[in-house]
Design a binder for these strands. Structure first.
Length: 518
RNA sequence: GAUCUCGUAGCUCAGCUGGCUAGAGCAUUUGACUUUUAAUCAAAGGGUCCUGGGUUCGAGUCCCAGCGAGAUCACCA
């Protein structure tokens, strides 16, 4: 009966047996004169502090503690009961004895359900079997839970590991109802704590160097800075179409034009494209622009940044992904794109025409569509033959100009731009260039994009006249970098799905009942 | 968008080539038990078998369509 869970809100009158029982208990508790939803509770300790801090030597400090949390297990034995409370730090066992906690409180304790939130005051002790527990003297119901919660039984093994029986494992329900996932599988909180630490470390790194965190528009009249399809929305008062940003690049460069010499933004971007293990329609990116620097400098900054973050959150330079060790210790390998082609295909693809590239692809057995552009063919060969080799951090540098309409022409290599992409574990993690600041060149590049767009490629860029005007006013030499924050989090937490590093990944809407409940 | 796999109780799952009133463990209810710990013991309740069609004497099971999910591929960060 999946839809019973899914459409609870639309079926307010329809409760199953167990939910009906909980509502009855709620009424009974109210009749006993107990408020099932009081306003506050004063905690003195976290579960973790008690479990790790209590000993024969410290028992004085734990003579009077107050803890609160969600009831995760109850074992009743007539006039005494044990339960496990779970708070943000972990679990602790509570011992309730009717003669100590009082008969009225014990009557409420008898009605406790898994998922209720309670507060307990008492002293800490060790049970006969040696588990550190709180011996309750006072009990307060803090929140009566009315909905069923998929709490599984757990066994703590001798080595301290936990075996969970019949755990809440349905990926769909875990993503849709993340609050249940967090309750039932609390260890996933570590991923999100680490995510927060990564972002904090990144911010600290930039702030320490004097670069300014800024905010630029999410709603943009012209989208740009990347090749992607946008989400479209409508502003009623202005009666115009607006686009959710696909990148913040063009606005951040305007700020460098305006005189800031280092700006960064950590922001959600939105791309109206497919979803899979590494793509969510909204995702977090970090973009930073620093004046008077180039992509060579940016490579050093990037490897130092990522090494610093890795050490901060993982305490080591080594990360392990599906059993593969990846060293985040600088310097990272640097390889020119066409050298990598040479290395992994044995062919020199530099300067080949489209037809020659198609022929080359066929020679090495990469299937290509003859209608594709030269750049598309090159990209395909890279994806098929090169990318998955780039497990250890590798800067791929010096891309063809056609692939990079916002990057500065290479200072010594005609036809290439000063750009790098950083690959780790076979996936792109960062993208950066010496920013194009030649206004004539920039205009030509965007106009070329417009032609590609007119020819039917909706991902090609749109000409942004105001941005071009800003470049004409004068952008100093500038290095820019974008990092896929979700991907960094995936790497540092060992997850291979973006859905496991985002609290609420995008899901198809659930089906509603056909009979008009909605 | 394509292909494959899956959808049975609150949770985790059985249910063979279609055949009695659809099962188990946990969870729930009632009773016993004042240091238990996957507590135990006794009894009980709980199901639109994802949805809609079809085949059949008979469908959880077979067929078709739809919805949702996961995996793989394609596009992208």
């Amino acid at each position: 009966m999946r839809f019973a869970l899914r459409n609870r809100r639309t079926m307010a009158e329809h409760h199953n047996e167990q939910e009906e029982q909980r509502r009855n208990k709620l009424a009974e508790i109210r009749q006993m004169g107990v408020n099932p939803y009081p306003a506050t509770f004063t905690k003195t300790h976290d579960a973790h502090q008690i479990v790790t801090g209590f000993s024969d030597d410290t028992q004085e400090q734990f003579a009077d503690v107050a803890v609160a949390g969600r009831v995760m297990a109850v074992r009743r034995m007539g006039k005494a009961s044990f339960c496990h409370l779970q708070d943000h730090s972990g679990r602790v066992q509570i011992y309730f004895k009717r003669d100590d906690v009082g008969e009225e409180a014990y009557d409420v304790i008898k009605k406790l359900d898994l998922g209720d939130i309670v507060g307990v005051r008492g002293h800490v002790f060790k049970t006969q079997t040696g588990e550190t527990s709180v011996y309750a003297k006072e009990f307060t119901l803090l929140t009566k839970s009315l909905a069923m919660i998929p709490i599984a039984k757990e066994e703590v093994n001798e080595d301290g590991t936990v075996t969970r029986y019949d755990a809440f494992a349905d990926k769909e329900q875990r993503y849709r109802k993340r609050y249940l996932d967090l309750i039932a599988n609390p260890e996933i909180k570590d991923v999100f704590v680490k995510r927060a630490r990564i972002i904090t470390a990144m911010r600290r790194y930039f702030d320490e160097r004097g670069w300014l965190e800024v905010e630029t528009p999410v709603l943009q009249p012209i989208y740009g800075g990347a090749t992607a399809r946008p989400f479209v929305t409508h502003h009623n008062a202005l009666d115009i179409e607006l686009y959710l940003r696909i990148a913040d690049e063009l606005y951040l460069k305007r700020l460098i034009v305006g005189g800031f010499e280092g700006v960064y933004e950590i922001s959600k971007n939105f791309r109206n494209e497919g979803m899979d293990k590494t793509h969510n329609p909204e995702f977090t990116s970090m973009e930073i622009y620093v004046a008077y620097k180039d992509y060579l400098w940016m490579m050093e900054m990037t490897e130092d940044l990522l090494a610093t973050i890795t050490r901060d959150v993982n305490g080591s330079d080594i990360i392990t992904m599906n059993g593969t060790e990846i060293s985040m210790k600088p310097p990272f390998r640097r390889a020119r794109m066409f050298d990598l082609f040479q290395e992994h295909t044995g062919m020199n693809l530099r300067g080949l025409s489209r037809d020659e590239l198609v022929a080359a692809a066929q020679t090495i057995g990469v299937p290509v569509d003859p209608s594709w552009s030269a750049m598309k063919v090159l990209d395909e060969i890279f994806g098929e033959r090169v990318e998955h080799h780039l497990v250890q951090p590798t800067f791929v540098i010096d891309y063809p100009v056609e692939m990079s309409p916002l990057a500065k022409a290479h200072r010594s290599e005609p036809g290439l731009v000063e750009r790098f992409e950083l690959f780790i574990n076979g996936k792109e993690v960062a993208n950066a260039f010496s920013e194009l600041n030649d206004p004539i060149d920039q205009r030509q590049r965007l106009e070329e994009q417009a032609r590609i767009r007119a020819a039917g490629d909706f991902e090609a860029m749109v000409v942004d006249e105001d941005f071009l005007h800003a470049i004409e006013v004068g952008l100093p030499p500038t290095a820019g970098l974008g990092i896929g924050v979700d991907r960094v989090v995936m790497l540092l937490t060992g997850n291979d799905s973006i859905r496991d590093v985002v609290f609420f990944p995008q899901m198809r809407p659930e089906r509603t009942l056909s009979d008009g409940h909605e």
